[in-house]
């Protein structure tokens, strides 16, 4: 395991005509680690991944993948990485095993495709053409294609989109196994839970820029125990709340309906807030004390909610 990162991106800019999809993005991914690019649709996640894969031209910036410039996707580099493109890809009439065997034939020492098909739960649809598979089955085939060649680096673009919870946990197990075996994994997601569950490093992107980066712990720890958040009707009277809170506490409303109380949060403060809501006939919802979720981080940084 070398010290050189598997993927190193500096000041990446990608423009399509007048639109700037990626606007000065940096990231580092090391071997045996999982990096999640987290952000809403249109944030520039897929564009960034496609530049790293070598399938999209960059406008400017430096990109090193496994020690080489990926531009033009040279064959020697493609052989060392596994790619799961968003939405998969196959012959419409092909069967699961035939497609996987074709991709496996491109590698010198592929995994056993029969085992992979069984393990990913694709045996039940072995006779169906690709176009008749469910979205989740297509996703799992695409994932199998990405890992069958024993790559050093795997790109997974929205790997659990359209999967049911069971399928999602299978994919998570697989990503953890890749990481444990020393594979570098770069995945994109708009699911906070997924980034928190899998990633060593999270890079939060919005409008093509990095708005925050760090481990999930680093990102969620700041300001803990000194802050309480909740949701309620927008535009409530914060003056009344300040009166009932102990000295030194401050309250504020961020985006409409999202409230924050800052100061030492103890049971009395919690009770005071709930009572204040009750007096106005409002139910405080999603009350959280201390640690923020990545969802909160995103909300704080962009003033918007992260949704699909």
């Amino acid at each position: 395991m070398g010290t050189e990162p598997a993927v190193e991106v500096r000041d990446l800019v990608v423009r399509y005509g007048t639109t700037t999809a990626v606007d000065g993005l940096d990231l580092d991914l090391h071997h045996g680690r999982v990096l999640a690019l987290l952000g809403p649709n249109g944030a520039g996640k897929t564009t960034t991944v496609e530049v790293c894969e070598g399938f999209r031209e960059r406008t400017s910036g430096t990109v090193r993948v496994l020690g080489a410039d990926p531009a033009g996707a040279p064959e020697a580099l493609r052989a060392r990485m596994g790619v799961m493109p968003q939405g998969g890809g196959a012959y419409p009439m092909v069967r699961v095993r035939e497609m996987l065997d074709l991709v496996a034939a491109c590698s010198a020492r592929p995994l056993d495709t029969g085992w992979l098909v069984r393990t990913l739960g694709l045996e039940s649809c072995a006779r169906l053409p690709y176009k008749r598979l469910s979205g989740g089955q297509q996703q799992r085939l695409s994932l199998a294609c990405a890992v069958v060649g024993r790559p050093e680096l795997v790109f997974l673009d929205e790997p659990t989109a359209s999967l049911d919870p069971q399928g999602r946990h299978l994919v998570w197990d697989l990503v953890r196994a890749l990481r444990a075996d020393g594979v570098a994994v770069l995945l994109t997601t708009h699911l906070m839970q997924e980034a928190e569950a899998l990633a060593d490093d999270v890079v939060i992107v919005d409008h093509g820029r990095v708005v925050a980066a760090g481990s999930p712990d680093e990102l969620t720890a700041s300001g803990s125990e000194q802050r309480m958040r909740f949701r309620a009707a927008p535009g409530m009277d914060l003056g009344l709340l300040t009166e009932v809170l102990p000295e030194g506490h401050a309250s504020s409303e961020g985006p409409p309906g999202h409230y924050t109380v800052e100061g030492a949060i103890d049971p009395q403060v919690l009770a005071a807030v709930t009572a204040w809501c009750a007096r106005q006939g409002v139910l405080a919802d999603d009350v959280r004390v201390g640690r923020r979720s990545l969802e909160d981080v995103f909300l704080d940084l962009t003033g918007r909610e992260l949704r699909s």
Binding site: A79, C106, A108, R109, P110, R150, P151, L178, D181
Partner: peptide, 8 residues
Amino acid sequence: FTPDPGIG
């Protein structure tokens, strides 16, 4: 999944 890539 121990990496062992190569061109077929």
